[in-house]
Design a protein around this nucleic acid. Structure first.
Length: 172
DNA sequence: GCCAACGTTGGC
DNA sequence: GCCAACGTTGGC
């Protein structure tokens, strides 16, 4: 069997695979982490997002888009790796689970309220790029994550910002 | 655990 | 439509 070549941040930087968009998505690692994504044998629903702006960004995502996987409320908080969008936005199944944490009483099968994409593992940084490191990099001054008061759990990043974070993550 | 900042809810 | 009260996020 031919050995699958593992992507690394540097191969990513050198060959931006296709004309794709770049994103940042936050998750608390205790809820869902890059490690959990890495261990999953199939794409995972990025469920539980209950913010309209974040939902709208997920609607814009295309299969193959890459995202920085950010661990929030972590030690330390930071970008832990890269994931890839595996399926376009579809109704978030957690909104229909009565009694569940993410139940949405307004939602019906015909008119769901919340949507989400499915994601897959792409690569894990050798060492997570901490929030402190991100802040100290002048090239990332305009990264939405770092702006005062920004709590948005999903937002676009530019290709330059994406590459810069990958570069930081590929250094030991 | 604290609290700043933001989003949502609901009375009016 | 205004806005106070409340809930949530997420760094520290």
């Amino acid at each position: 069997m031919k050995k699958q070549k593992t992507p690394t941040p540097s191969t990513l930087i050198k060959s931006p695979a296709r004309n794709c968009q770049y994103w940042l998505m936050k998750s608390e690692p205790e809820v869902f982490s890059i490690g959990a994504l890495q261990r999953s044998s199939k794409p995972v629903e990025w469920d539980g997002v209950r913010n309209y702006q974040a939902r709208n960004y997920m609607r814009e995502m295309q299969v193959g888009d890459l995202f920085l996987f950010y661990h929030s409320n972590a030690e330390p908080s930071g970008v832990a790796g890269v994931g890839v969008i595996a399926n376009q936005a579809h109704p978030d199944s957690s909104q229909f689970k009565k009694g569940g944490e993410y139940f949405e009483p307004r939602a019906t099968a015909e008119q769901p309220v919340w949507e989400c994409v499915d994601v897959a593992f792409h690569l894990r940084f050798k060492k997570p790029v901490s929030l402190e490191e991100l802040r100290s990099n002048p090239k990332l001054k305009t990264l939405p994550l770092l702006q005062k008061g920004t709590r948005l759990s999903i937002h676009p990043v530019t290709v330059d910002q994406f590459r810069e974070v990958c570069l930081m993550g590929s250094r030991l």
